[in-house]
Design a protein around this nucleic acid. Sequence first.
DNA 1: CATGAATGAGTGTTCATTCAT
DNA 2: GATGAATGAACACTCATTCAT
Lengths: 223, 223, 223, 223
Amino acid sequence: MAAALNLFVARGYAATRLEDVASAAGVSKGTVYLYFANKEELFKAVVQENLLPALAEGEALIDTFEGSTEALLHEILMGWWELIGESPASGLTKLLMAESGNFPDLAQYYNEEVIERCDRLFARILARGVAQGEFRETDVDLTTLALTAPMLFLMMWKHSFGPCASKVLEPKAFITHVVALVLHGLLRNPVPGAVIPPPPPLTAQPWRTPSDVNGDANGGTKS
Amino acid sequence: MAAALNLFVARGYAATRLEDVASAAGVSKGTVYLYFANKEELFKAVVQENLLPALAEGEALIDTFEGSTEALLHEILMGWWELIGESPASGLTKLLMAESGNFPDLAQYYNEEVIERCDRLFARILARGVAQGEFRETDVDLTTLALTAPMLFLMMWKHSFGPCASKVLEPKAFITHVVALVLHGLLRNPVPGAVIPPPPPLTAQPWRTPSDVNGDANGGTKS
Amino acid sequence: MAAALNLFVARGYAATRLEDVASAAGVSKGTVYLYFANKEELFKAVVQENLLPALAEGEALIDTFEGSTEALLHEILMGWWELIGESPASGLTKLLMAESGNFPDLAQYYNEEVIERCDRLFARILARGVAQGEFRETDVDLTTLALTAPMLFLMMWKHSFGPCASKVLEPKAFITHVVALVLHGLLRNPVPGAVIPPPPPLTAQPWRTPSDVNGDANGGTKS
Amino acid sequence: MAAALNLFVARGYAATRLEDVASAAGVSKGTVYLYFANKEELFKAVVQENLLPALAEGEALIDTFEGSTEALLHEILMGWWELIGESPASGLTKLLMAESGNFPDLAQYYNEEVIERCDRLFARILARGVAQGEFRETDVDLTTLALTAPMLFLMMWKHSFGPCASKVLEPKAFITHVVALVLHGLLRNPVPGAVIPPPPPLTAQPWRTPSDVNGDANGGTKS
DNA sequence: CATGAATGAGTGTTCATTCAT
DNA sequence: GATGAATGAACACTCATTCAT
């Protein structure tokens, strides 16, 4: 399964030949079928074997943690990266997204077992922050996503454009920056104590091509 | 090429049969080869045909915009989603990440032509915000990533787990929330006027398994 | 048809694409089908167009020739080479032998129209030599073949191993040598006036491996 | 490989379908690819497997032979025919000439490994004949060719026009005839002891068409 | 008369899967 | 339990052939 994990991550599902998995594992092609009914089952087994343990470990932390919720968030995200992001499991996450269309049941499973558990984890953290008066009132689902999106992005990036990008992306520095940004805000003079204000109204069709908006081209300005 | 785009996005590169592309386009298998040398060239053509125009349109907005940089950011991200995220180009972005390992030259090309141009766009916006006294001093590269990561996440999500997730994710609401979060911060009492403070120090190895940290098991507390 | 001739000779029947023939001829692929029903008919037309005229010319010479039959033979063979061997028709001959199995009717046709006429030509020459007292009595069919074999060999060679052989073969020198050899014989002291003597009896199984002929290994000597 | 040999010889390289080879061998199409990387490799393997052993056997004879060089020549040629000409290897020789243009490396290999070794064999025989006073001084290369050309012709003939010719060609009788002819000469009164005399001068352009030689049409007569 | 876009049967090749040993 | 030889369905790609223009 370790061999399969590496090859699936490196080449994708379709491009991974069972013969390569077998020889990488030092066994014959037929032996694979003694343990897995077919390629699809092998794939599913690899996914489940490598994703769940990491998540389980992560869930243990939260209850025992003492300190500010900002520090807790930082810890959680950094630990996530160290445990999953830096391990081959991050490759699996990417692979799962890439192949989700061809493996709906797997995507369903992953969604239920991993993502929703993950969401509940963050919901608890956010609730802790609000309860202790550290955080503003906030939409828990959206804020959770705003925190997990950079993590998923990091995993995807590592296994897609990262290797061929010109600027190297330092994951841990990025995580630290994101936490600081989301917590403290980018504005020089944020309004303390308030709920986050609603955004300004969008301009009408600002991105349309000129030919599309010739009639009311001045509608593109904000006011 | 429209047929190829749809099928590539729906099934992935390997699982898309040229015969299906042909019949979806209403032509025969051989006809495809009159216009594209092989499957790979078709794929590359689809990618380039559908990604670049969208980006080009996006770059036009920034110069003419008047208003707060917060509003500009909101506009840009929302426009990005309307123009690319809601179009099949978002599917291509996902596909490209999924297949980047098997098409290194395409990934390289996408990185140079799309990502780096995108980065420069955001760098200009952030510089505008800082210059006008709206934003704190900030690491431009990391903040750019913190803003683009949710966008890439949205595209990936839409074409992977989104369709089978229990909670529906409303992209525009998410974008609005992310902008507000990143700008105003999650803290109830952020420090106005200051540079974002450094994060608290991480605890020593908080996520390690007990077997790994047996020597200093109490290291799991914060300090 | 000139284009087809060149390509057929250069690449063989199967490896010649009609599209290449068309573009070499400066017309479109469809145009070829205005003049030839299909690839096979084109091939047959090329063969007939290029082989028969050369042979017809050759037949004209013999009746008017005055001089020794040895000189006549030399003239005929040399003329054959100049007219056919040095022209693309030699390539056709090679091609016809190569493809005879796949075009039995063409081989049949070639056999009747070319080879048998050729045989009759040589039979007349040999009869002339015997009638004039120049040549010994001889088996006409075999001697004809003994004279035409080197010619066919030359044509085959030119279009097969010739281009990659280390020693260059000078066709005209070879023809001259063959005529001299066949006429005068290789022996230092041939027996004038006599019929060619029968060959010595072959040894029993001279080429068998020793393990096969262990019983009478000395049978390898001549008598 | 036996099945491939038969089919290649019978139909040529291009017209032989791997599926036919497989079914002729009693296996499935995929099985062929367990042993040969592709069609080309199968072809090359068939050629090398079937040509070299035959030649190796042939080279053994010459050293042990006692008797006249004329008899030796007869033995060698007859043995060649029995060992190679009558075996499928003769079909391979024909095939190799037919496909030499499409397999230059194979032609090169055959030329070096087979033809040149063959040439050296005959050079030794001719030198023996001259050294023992049996043969006239002669151009070794050309005489070698004059002896091997009928053999190659026989192989070609057998697998091309032979099956559809009206007159049957008896190979062994032909070989015997050629040896006698080349040794004793066709002339009734050859000149003993002498070097073969140079050929009479060729007439000027005797084969040209009338339109080509209109200026000096009388130059076509010999004197 | 000429075109060239379109066709689709055919073939080389791959690889997940099986099973006798 | 393990093997590896064998399978055959599947697919990318080719090219002779057609036909509307």
